[in-house]
Write a protein that binds this DNA or RNA. Structure first.
Lengths: 154, 154
DNA sequence: ATAAAGAGGACCAATCTAGTCTCGATTGCT
DNA sequence: AGCAATCGAGACTAGATTGGTCCTCTTTAT
């Protein structure tokens, strides 16, 4: 688990698709190209538009396109647009709910774990996702693993 | 979001607690010490026992203790015990459900993202969580962030 | 004017989650 | 041997979340 929602998955797929072709794409086209049902595509894109990941053009010949260059949009942007801020635990998201505060050593550490996950996802851009081989990604993941292993002394 | 479940959060808290004190702890004690309701503590520990993160001792004077040294148990072990394998998307978890396979550039890349998240979490051990200041964690997170930034060229 | 688009939000079914409870199996102590 | 303390397995419920659809209104190119 530790899963992103299906809608977010769709969001990445759609955004990645937009990253590879330029002009405004109407929902109907995107639905056909990604094989995701049109109402769902529409729902996802409305959320992405609100978060300014994509821009919309109404009316005939309108549609959606990315609001920035693919290499300037990380997957975190998309995830946060559809699910709210990255917060691995409730503690991280909303400090008030934790009644254990005083005695909870764990809490401060969760915040750091959260940062680690955020950093990992923020390093991955839509342009990486669009690239089939994902050459840069391979490097990225390998280096993250090595950084950890070095610290741990494995 | 991208959240672990509450039960998993409890699992980490309980496991961290076990990491700081030795002998077998009955559920009743752990419940009192962590302020988590006893039936819930029991549920979590049963799952952790099945995954061999903790060992159990039945009968009077029984209880739970860690199955390995705290520095040999990563948070991933606990998360996977309670939620199943880390799988950021359905694709990563179960390849059969994805009808887009052929045309889905994104899929292989999700696998890599998944690996990155896994690596980030696997580097964090229970002994790190038990440490209040979390000195080693600070280093860990910082280095992960730097590794990313270096790659990206920011 | 008309048709092609998106915006906003209501709505429902299905699934997942948290939490409790019951009953049975072990085990140490007296 | 008997008792009390503990864990093991799993059923069960209420509530929250998610995925997906649909309807109505606004905007805009032709």
């Amino acid at each position: 688990m530790l899963r992103i929602s299906k809608l977010t998955d769709y969001g990445i797929v759609i955004a990645t698709h937009l990253a590879s072709c330029g002009g405004p794409h109407p929902v109907s086209d995107l639905s056909a190209e990604t094989e995701i049902p049109a109402p769902t595509v529409a729902k996802v894109l409305k959320a992405l538009a609100r978060a300014e990941v994509v821009t919309s053009q109404r009316g005939a010949r309108g549609g959606y396109q990315l609001a920035h260059r693919p290499e300037d949009i990380s997957v975190v942007r998309v995830i946060e647009a559809l699910e709210g801020p990255i917060a691995v635990t409730e503690c991280v998201d909303d400090e008030s709910v934790c009644s254990h505060e005083a005695r909870c050593n764990v809490r401060a550490n969760w915040q750091r774990i959260n940062d680690a996950v955020y950093a990992a996802l923020d390093g991955i851009k839509l342009s990486d996702m669009a690239e089939p081989g994902g050459a840069r990604l391979v490097q990225l993941v390998r280096s993250a693993g090595e950084a950890n292993r070095a610290r741990i002394g494995v």
